[in-house]
Design a protein around this nucleic acid. Structure first.
Lengths: 106, 106
DNA sequence: TTGACACGTAACCATCTAGTTTCATATGAT
DNA sequence: ATCATATGAAACTAGATGGTTACGTGTCAA
């Protein structure tokens, strides 16, 4: 890992474990240990993934006694959705072509 | 680069150069050399990026004489859009909270 | 105050990544 | 036939990435 400097939202969600973390956090607030129970990797590994997600602004943390609770912060995903949607017309065009082809066949 | 085995759509779009390539290809078909003129990296680097994009199903190629023309294939981006949109309610909730706050202020 | 628990961080490692230069091959032009 | 152009692939490199184990510190419980 060795999360150095950058880590934008795109590279943050490139890792499947991190995407899964976000999926779990969609269900509420979790401590590192609680999160770790969902994975096969060790607790420090999850901790590092959380650091990367925090760097990308995708999670926030708050101290609760000796725990540290992580919470989803979805805003940065809007950027990804928007960028992706720029290409929507292209896959729609392809589907339309397919539909036309199927119409011609029937 | 050394694009090995996996390269799903998420890691394919994690690289800013590759996202830019897709943006350019949204404007039509391009040869490798034509694409390279938009970047500072060398032609083989662009070629490798294209190989990764092809592996992720995001571009298709066709031979045109001695050229090889690359074309956008946006379909795999639908998966990213869908995954991202699962979280839409969360950023909307945040905006709603902000709106409420602003309403209270005014 | 002594111990157990939760957590981040350091040190280390194997592998992947993005880039380079060099080379081989196919195709088009003279 | 000869030469230039377009491209992929090979060999190599520095640095990033994902993982581990070991350790230090803060906090709750006896």
């Amino acid at each position: 890992m060795t999360e150095v400097v950058h880590h934008d939202v795109y590279s943050a969600i490139a890792d499947p474990t991190r995407r899964q973390v976000l999926g779990i956090l969609a269900g509420g607030e979790y401590s590192v240990t609680a999160l770790t129970s969902h994975f096969t990797v060790t607790r420090p590994a999850v901790s590092k993934h959380l650091a990367i997600l925090r760097e990308a602004g995708l999670v926030t943390e708050r101290k609760m006694g000796r725990e540290r609770r992580y919470r989803l912060r979805a805003e940065p995903l809007k950027e990804v959705r928007d960028w992706t949607e720029r290409f929507e017309q292209f896959w729609i065009a392809k589907l339309t072509a397919l539909e036309k082809h199927l119409e011609k066949e029937s």
